[in-house]
Design a protein around this nucleic acid. Structure first.
Lengths: 362, 362
DNA sequence: ACCTAGAATTTGAACGATCAAATTTCTGAC
DNA sequence: GTCAGAAATTTGATCGTTCAAATTCTAGGT
């Protein structure tokens, strides 16, 4: 059977098409009595506006597009997926749809975006994984296509370009807080296990550790360098590297890592070296960290998603994508420190197998 | 500036609207010379059909909907995300879009589906995480909404209902193969570390182990039971449970687990007990397993996604969702056994830290 | 040269909503 | 009771495409 249209509702409620439309879109314009009558008719017929027709007329889709990376990027790969979850949830609440697409290269992504945009499928885009000299933002600005990036623009000047709206997690502050927490607990030689520079996010995170160590302990460059280990993001490599550190002359009494992958490697190395007492803090708060009781810095992706939508729609939450002129074109989200106690895990204290860590489950 | 329409292309190529439409949708109907002329015009104007208009006219959206679970389900949580990746990729190749939505309960999901369907936003749905007495398939069949589930219907009779199209991974066969591989390598007392029944997938997986042990070793129920450990899906709990097993009278010489989470627990327990020689195989081939070198059974999610789309669209790959009457309404995908050598990992051989496991990276 | 079947193309209408402008109804002041 | 102005409602046009039917063109047989 045919689905009901405005026409059907109008006939049932004895009003015109347009009044039905007004009831749905601008109820304030309709006299209360009429409003009720039309709403009753809508319920009676179980009417739902046809979105395609609405979009055709309005030249809007109320849909945001986001690219889903094909790459399966190890332990931390789920971060973008978690972001996607939050984004979808909050977009749905705001009456927006989320459309996925894939692309292998930035160029291909641009093609896809153009196709989706010209086809009137998508109003605005969320970009993830920004990188140095990313061509995408510039192109989008040129085309006047609304967008927001998860990740700040790493090319130098653009940080405050109001045309480039972005949300990011303040990795520096997260690592800063993590380092301070170890120093507060009495540590004096907190090591940094990071990635080989230059990596935009990696360098940013390390600066948090550097700042904390400088401020609290007054360390200089040489001392910092001696506490800093650089290794690619791989468990085995990290294990190897940290094992070397632990076999060296200056033993760290705490380790802050650029990722949970590195933290896991550090944990294995420390455990192997019989130094299960050294506190370790990772980054991303992945399921692995949770499962193993590793402390970590959590990116608050729900806040990132909320910020992204707010920048796209305006903070109020209009259900239509507007080119809202906002005071601030970006948001820097403060991450949360999640402290766990790996030393309570059976892996390290065989004598105390009691399932304590299970309490961490939610 | 206004985007070009069929009208503009028609004028440029000196043909009618409909011919332009034919060039795009049924090129076979157009004389070669005209075809070329129109295609040139399309390129010249950089014309792209407006999807909203097309959808309005055709009453089709070429979009499939899938619900994104809000739950963050531990180490194996990424499985559905990986499926989503594959699905998006292959859907894009077939000219389909993937639209996300969220819902907290099955009832809410049904509401969302209805809204998306009535709004002509989505043609067909992919359901994940089917469960016992799932109300969704029945409702969708009633409403004649095309759908396919990832996960077979666990209510008894429906397995062969041609109206319910489904794709699933043959967990039984995966575990069967895993068990055989250990037996082939000389093991004789392969233990099963699984979840407490009844869990549909868990019981299915265990049956693979049972079958292999029965066939190869002629074991009876009692012997099987003595090799079977049941524990909830948590690393610490699993560690605890497996530690007890290893402290018992009958030592297993191999372990097959219902999940990577359990496998990780088993690995920790074995390591702690000094039994790093016992081979362990998990399930899901999560990033964790890859990072730690744990062998596992991989769900081939690209094949699952391909199967799901094939069932929805017909195997040929028409770009329009058809109610294709297929010979088979379901696909059971055979998983792949991924063998790694955890005994080579530094965690277990401190003397051989050489990064061998890094070779596992792709 | 004529006719015809089929191929190729065009025309008018429709999909279901909203916009912009026109019309009717209501309200309150004089 | 009249009238201006606001409020409420209706009307006609339109968004860009494809469907269905009508028309024109082409090739082949007689």
């Amino acid at each position: 059977m045919r689905l009901p249209t405005v026409e059907d509702v109008a006939r049932t409620a004895r009003v015109s098409r347009q009044t039905v439309s007004n009831v749905i879109n601008t109820p304030a314009r309709v006299k209360p009595a009429t409003l009720l009558r039309v709403q009753a008719a809508i319920r009676e017929l179980d009417y739902r506006p046809n979105q395609s027709a609405r979009r055709l007329r309005q030249q809007k889709s109320a849909t945001i597009g986001i690219r889903l990376d094909p790459q399966l990027n190890g332990i931390s790969g789920a971060v973008l997926d978690r972001f996607l979850h939050s984004l979808t949830e909050q977009a749905t609440e705001r009456g927006l749809r989320v459309l996925l697409f894939t692309a292998a290269t930035p160029t291909e992504e641009i093609d896809q975006i153009r196709a989706l945009r010209d086809g009137a499928d998508v109003d605005a885009f969320v970009l993830t994984a920004t990188f140095d000299h990313d061509p995408r933002p510039e192109w989008l600005i040129e085309q006047k296509i609304p967008f927001v990036t998860f990740g700040r623009p790493w090319g130098i000047d653009d940080l405050n370009d109001p045309q480039h709206r972005w949300v990011d997690v303040d990795g520096r502050r997260g690592v800063y807080a993590a380092t301070l927490s170890l120093l507060d607990a009495g540590a004096e030689r907190v090591a940094w296990i990071g990635w080989p520079p230059p990596t935009a996010t990696g360098d940013d995170r390390r600066s948090g550790w550097e700042d904390a160590m400088r401020e609290r302990l007054g360390l200089g460059d040489a001392e910092l360098a001696s506490l800093c280990t650089e290794v690619v993001d791989d468990v085995a490599e990290a294990t190897n590297a940290v094992a070397n550190v632990l076999a060296g002359a200056v033993l760290p009494d705490g380790m802050v890592c650029a990722s949970d992958t590195l933290a896991l490697g550090a944990l294995i190395a420390a455990s192997t070296a019989g130094r299960r007492d050294i506190p370790i803090i990772g980054f991303d708060d992945t399921p692995v960290a949770a499962a193993l009781g590793i402390s970590s810095v959590e990116q608050r992706l729900d806040q990132v998603a909320a910020g992204a939508l707010a920048l796209l729609l305006g903070p109020v939450g209009d259900s239509v994508v507007a080119s809202g002129a906002l005071d601030v074109a970006h948001r820097l989200i403060e991450p949360a420190l999640v402290l766990r106690r790996p030393q309570d895990l059976p892996m390290f204290n065989p004598s105390r197998i009691d399932g304590t860590a299970a309490a961490d489950k939610h």
